[in-house]
Structures are given as C-alpha cells and as structure tokens.
Design a protein around this nucleic acid. Sequence first.
DNA 1: TTGCAGGGGTCAA
DNA 2: TTGACCCCTGCA
Length: 289
Amino acid sequence: MQVYQNHDEVIVEGVKAFNLQHIFECGQCFRWEKEENGSYTGVVYGRVINIRNDGETIILSNTNMQDFHAIWKSYFDLERDYRAIQACLSKDESMKKAAAFGWGIRILNQDVWECLVSFIISSNNIIPRIQKIIKSLSEKYGQPILFNGKTYYSFPRPEDVYQKNLEELAFCKSGYRCKYILDAARKIVEGNINIEALTALSTFEAREELMKIKGVGPKVADCVLLFSLQKYDVFPTDVWIRRIVAYLYFGHSITIKDVQKFAIERFGSLGGFAQQYLFYYARELKIGK
DNA sequence: TTGCAGGGGTCAA
DNA sequence: TTGACCCCTGCA
C-alpha cells in the first residue's frame, strides 16, 4: 500500500479487496451518498470526503495526509488483510459464495456515538426511513460543512441533544425511539457510560454496558460493537441473518439463540466478517424471505 | 380512495 | 413469552 497527497486528494495505491458499493451498501452505515460518477460522498467525524476508486487505487478527495493517518486508514480498515479473512471463511460452500458475492466489503470503524444512535433508530425500521431520520437530526443539530457548493451537516454530538426534550425531538419522526436517543445522550453526557472506553473492555462487558441504554438490545449492541468498537467476534442477528443461516445451514427455521451458538462454533473470532457477507448476500438475493 | 400489514428490535407486563 | 409501539410505504 502506497500513499501520497496531490492537492486536496490522498491517493492510496495497491489496495486489495476493496469495493465501494459493497462497503457502503452492505447495511453498516447510513450517510454515504452515491454520486452520478460512481463515487461516494459522506460525512464522517465532522468532515466531508468523497471517495472513488480506479482498480486497486483509491482516491480520497477533500482531505490530507494527516487525516488519512489519523482517521481514514482506520475508518476503512485499510491495514487488514481481507483476502486472508475471505479465504479463512470460505471453508464451506455457502460462505464461499457469500464472501465471493460481497468481495471487497470492509468493516468501517465508525464513530461510537453516531453508530449507537443510528442503530437505535434502526430497530423495527426500514433503511430509507433510518437515513431520513439521521439526515434531519444532523440538519437540525449538526454543524454545516460546505463541499463542492453543497451544504452537508456533521452528526450532532451527545451534548447537542442532551438538553432537548421529547417534544423538541419529535420533528425527526423517529417516534418512540426519540426517548431512547435522549436516554443515550443523557447517560453519556452525565458520565454514566463512557463509550470511548468500551473498546478496552471485553466483548461481553462492552455489550452489557451498551445494553444499559434504553432501546439497546442484543442486536443494536452487537452492531455498535462490530461497526465502531472493533469487536469482530460478534454476529449481529436480525431477521435477515436468521433467515439466511436457517436457509443455508439448517433447512428449517431456527431461533436467534441457535444462530448465535452456530456462529460462535462455525466462525469464531471472524463472526463479524461472516455476518457482513451473509447479510449482504441474503438481502441482495432476497434469500430466505 | 381507504385500510391494513409490516419493517435490520426492544420494552414491559 | 407475547403484544404494542411511531411512522410511513406498498399494495389490495
């Protein structure tokens, strides 16, 4: 991997197993927009960047080397050998197909707070509405950022929503989830939960901490653990995952508990990667519905 | 046009 | 263990 800067662009050469569409459309993030030229623009850690690729070269626009090393290298998980992971997981035929289908998926290292709120909103909800709610929250309480003549908004910080009440938050149309967002903001601002410190805890301990927040059950907690706390052994299990695991490995319907047990035995410390391949595979092919 | 089911779960009884 | 839940789209 070779990295250099050209004006406001950082160019990274020799990146294997990296596919923008698969990364942004596999369900782990909600704020990346596809442009007409096939590139993607997103608001991440209070910055707007555009990313495109040309073979094994990726080009990050509106950034610099300092941010690349401080943020993007880790955000896009560029130092991990995904081909090795794919090879390791491809021991059974089903997983081999799923991993081949979703080749180039990277597990993004997202901001914990944003990830937490996003997946609280995701519960019993559909993707277009989740995106809409996150967008309106950002427009109302985030900071404007100008890029290419267009105004983007950073994701609001916990402090930005801390003092709000339910009536004020109702505009975002997240319904009964508004009180969960407020609970999360309050627990964090008041110091009941230190989300930054969760990385240092074990997966089990970190999950217990997250589930102290209202609206955070096992599924939401596992998404936060996987997408923002580098806990790659979790296997977030929603209806899609349950259906595809049942379909591919059991041949009959199974419980969430069965899925969890199966994932630990089959995928172990690579559960999170396996889950992403399977989830994307199931949704795109509408398998198991 | 109206009515109803259901969606990447969680809470509370 | 089982409904209810905000909101809104899709479909009859």
